[in-house]
Design a protein around this nucleic acid. Structure first.
Lengths: 209, 209
DNA sequence: CTGCTTTTACCTGATATCAGGTAATAAAAA
DNA sequence: TTTTTATTACCTGATATCAGGTAAAAGCAG
């Protein structure tokens, strides 16, 4: 059997790279290439597709939603997600929405080939680095960073804009002393010595905005 | 003349894609491919290279620093940066460190080819989307950002780690009062109200590390 | 309904920051 | 060589932060 394969990626070079890679594989035939999910959704309505390799970060529709939409109507199509960087939660979300595998783009050619073969054989596949990402749920959850509450986030944001306690109190219609308490709570929560360290920490962890 | 070209990218598929693309170009010959900057630095010491296409987000050494290092010893090598997403400041930083161009990976094949040809002809080149990114200098960004001096950077870094003036003075073997002066100078230079705003500003503009 | 978290608020005191000034020496650029 | 910038250092005073404690009201979840 020959697997009719579609590639979806908004980077022409990546499409070209994968095409080259897959041309080695006997029973894989690339029937179409797309730069976004919309075109793909149209295509699969009128054409037979067995395998889809898709970038998860796509314009307009993201890969997770795209995967879900496709699987609802065409559960037999094997879908493998790809991205340059990733996080545990994103990979899990992709699989939970019906994805048959996830490959990081820094994977070697052999990894790519193995994953694709295993996926069409019915397995859920991950490239090596993805495996290490998802197999560290314990240590990550142990060092899980507590979240900022809504109010704390408001205050942290204003702090990052250089506002003083009094200015923040005025902005949020709070007492000076309330803001002071929030400040102290935030610093204690993350064990930070002062606002400078706190802001650096929050920005580096994308916890503002 | 044939241009000896090296590709640096930690994504095998991207390397493969660019290889395919460049194989069409008559006077471009790919002599080597690397997954990180370290291997490249070794290579150029012993071999002639005319053109380097590099991913800006690389493991261990980032593209900006890599470009700078290479250009210091080999100013004639044409270096083009690439990435999937980018910001104005990063592109500018890359060019300021000697880069001859910047291409977003979602560029079309034609864009890639044109940029490469123009770059080896001596131009500074940008792919279409990069042009739109850099041609929007917001009123804030219009005023070019003055650089931190070495000492100021040291102090700003320690501030971002939550150190107090006294601790910084001890760390750098300076007087408390000297550190205080530096702090004031930095705040004045960027017109910031306090360290929190300063750290946020510096981090957002990638001016620490 | 009953805990748990969040948000609000107050008091005090030690310490740090910020803003204003000045100025000598060294290094780099013009 | 002259000028500018960087780095070093000191003084003072007003204001802000940080750390300790306490506590009530509101909202949410078990």
């Amino acid at each position: 059997m020959i697997y009719k394969t579609v590639i979806v990626d908004d980077h022409p070079i990546v499409i070209s790279g994968i095409s080259g890679l897959l041309s080695d594989l006997e029973n894989i035939k690339i029937v179409e290439k797309f730069g976004s999910g919309i075109a793909l959704l149209d295509y699969i309505e009128d054409n037979t597709v067995d395998l889809i390799l898709m970038d998860v970060f796509l314009p307009i529709i993201n890969g997770v939603d795209l995967c879900k939409t496709i699987k609802q109507k065409h559960p037999k199509i094997v879908i493998i997600g790809m991205s340059s960087q990733s996080e545990r939660s994103l990979v899990m979300q992709f699989i939970q929405n019906g994805g048959n595998g996830y490959i990081l783009k820094n994977a070697s050619f052999d990894e790519f080939k193995n994953c694709i073969y295993k996926a069409i054989a019915g397995e859920i596949v991950f490239s090596e680095e993805v495996k290490t990402i998802i197999s560290q749920p314990l240590s990550e959850e142990l060092e899980r960073i507590p979240a900022l509450s809504r109010r704390e986030r408001d205050i942290a944001l204003l702090l990052s804009q250089g506002k003083s306690t009094q200015e923040i109190a005025d902005d949020l219609f709070l007492s000076f002393l309330t803001v002071q308490t929030h400040r102290r709570n935030i610093l204690q929560k993350y064990k930070m010595k002062n606002v400078a360290e706190l802001i650096a920490f929050l920005l580096k962890n994308n916890m503002l905005n």
